[in-house]
């Protein structure tokens, strides 16, 4: 799993790639929470287009990111969900909790 961070005018964008599982979800959680609290942008966007698999610990990390963002008045947006990532959110009945768009342009335009 690799994660990198970009800044846009109104958004912090995380580009994640690889599998998010029990081995590396703590690293993703730490990176996302640290940057959310530091940047305090209006939008936090997590780009999962290159993520092939996400397990329940990865979903839990996204929930923590969502809560941290909302606590700071930011929107927390997921984009580019793979079939597997979408299934993980659907099976855990959390798909409706997240704001989800197909791509970055849509996420920034709303």
């Amino acid at each position: 799993m690799q994660i990198s961070t970009r800044r846009h005018d109104t958004a912090t964008i995380f580009d994640v790639s690889g599998d998010i599982d029990f081995a590396n979800s703590p690293e993703m959680r730490q990176s996302v929470l640290r940057e959310i609290r530091k940047s305090r942008t209006a939008r936090v966007i997590v780009n999962l287009r290159q993520v092939r698999y996400i397990d329940s610990s990865g979903v839990a990390s996204l929930i923590e990111g969502l809560k941290a963002s909302h606590d700071l008045g930011s929107r927390f947006i997921l984009i580019g969900l793979s079939t597997s990532a979408r299934e993980a959110l659907q099976l855990s009945r959390l798909i409706k909790v997240f704001e989800i768009y197909d791509n970055e342009e849509q996420a920034l335009a709303t």
Binding site: D55, S56, S57, V59, A60, S61, I63, E64, A88, L91, S92, R93, L94, V97
Partner: peptide
Amino acid sequence: DQIRPGGLGLHL
């Protein structure tokens, strides 16, 4: 129905 991290693995 609880939106919080953890406890999802067994459901899956």
